[in-house]
């Protein structure tokens, strides 16, 4: 099976230049590597879940792919064009193929525009030839598709609930018939019952329209539900990537194991202390990441080699960036707890 992937990302890097506080104006700003060398591929119609703790570069990755922040590396689209470093004019042709759904449903809608105007905006930008009657017709059809009443086309965002606002955001992303939608934590701001509705809507639309999704979340159960494959990020680097079943059943990287063990279990008798693998310390600063493996400062299995050598992302379908992959032994878990307790 050698079909071309929809998106082939290779060594994607996003570096922000941070000026130190109180620094002289001529002092060179310090680099902050928000995303440092991410590789992955995405097939048409596939869902890739991206997980990781706050500050690991999930959202920056999304913004880099859509061209909102400058990035380096390659992100090859299905037609062979590299999306990174395109001029805004060249990027325009791809903007209707890649759309984004944002985290805060209300904040991502202009409060002074009606729902109809909001959903029509991508259409008016990318298909300027359409007549306004036809635009309205399409907007109404799309509203129906995402589960909104088409007669509410003249309402304003503040008149809708959070879940409805997110449906408006999804309608806006879908109206230009994209091939890829990047969802940046689309359900984090919603409560649980609404989360399920929005996620099921996304799954249904994906099946109907053959969309590929990049689904960013920090809720692992949501990611497990929606994704075909899952990518685990830590400090701007890929730790592990594999099919959802594989990764959740048999995580290889110590970080993935710690992350999975922290998923809350809805059972009052369940004692989290028995299974959670605690991690010592906080996320290191991305201004000065640890040498070698970025996770080694908190890893219960760290060896001297981890500080010297950056582990490569190895494997076929299930790739891991670790010198010593494999399930954590009881001994290592006990050691991690002891460090945490100290």
């Amino acid at each position: 099976m050698m079909t071309r992937p929809l998106l082939d990302v290779h060594d994607l890097r996003v570096t922000f230049r941070i000026r130190r506080e109180g620094a002289m104006p001529w002092a060179a700003p310090l680099p902050l590597h928000a995303v440092s060398g991410v590789d992955f591929t995405l097939d048409p119609g596939e869902t890739l879940g991206v997980v990781g703790e706050s500050g690991c570069g999930k959202s920056t990755l999304a913004r880099a792919l859509i061209g909102l922040v400058p990035a380096a590396g390659r992100a090859e689209w299905i037609d062979g064009r590299d999306l990174i470093g395109l001029s805004p004019r060249q990027m325009m042709t791809y903007r209707s193929d890649i759309q984004m759904v944002f985290q805060d449903p209300l904040a991502s809608l202009n409060p002074r525009m009606t729902v109809g105007q909001i959903i029509a905006e991508p259409l008016k930008t990318h298909r300027p030839g359409l007549k306004s009657a036809e635009v309205k017709e399409r907007v109404k059809a799309m509203m129906e598709k995402v589960g909104l009443l088409p007669n509410q086309i003249n309402r304003y965002p503040h008149e809708f609930s959070g879940g409805q606002c997110q449906r408006i955001g999804i309608a806006r992303a879908l109206i230009v018939e994209p091939k890829l939608i990047i969802c940046d934590e689309p359900v984090s701001a919603l409560d649980v019952s609404i989360q399920a509705q929005v996620i099921n809507l996304l799954i249904r639309l994906q099946r109907e329209l053959g969309l590929a999704l990049i689904f960013i979340a920090h809720d692992l159960s949501v990611v497990k539900h929606i994704s075909d494959r899952v990518m685990v990020l830590y400090l701007g680097k890929v730790m592990e990537i594999g099919t959802t079943d594989d990764l959740f059943a048999d995580p290889q990287h110590p970080y993935t194991q710690a992350l999975l063990s922290a998923v809350p279990v809805p059972d009052p008798d369940y004692d989290p202390a028995a299974t959670v693998v605690p991690l010592a310390g906080d996320l290191p600063s991305p201004m000065s990441p640890p040498s070698g493996c970025v996770f080694r400062t908190r890893c219960p299995r760290a060896q001297p080699v981890c500080a010297r050598q950056v582990p490569a992302l190895l494997g076929d379908a299930h790739q891991t960036a670790c010198h010593f992959p494999g399930p954590l032994s009881d001994e290592e878990i006990a050691r991690a707890r002891a460090v945490r307790a100290a």
Partner: peptide, 13 residues
């Protein structure tokens, strides 16, 4: 830096 401006930029306005 509000999200709706970012959304407009992502659309390509």
């Amino acid at each position: 830096n509000r999200e709706f401006i970012e959304a407009a930029r992502a659309i390509g306005v």
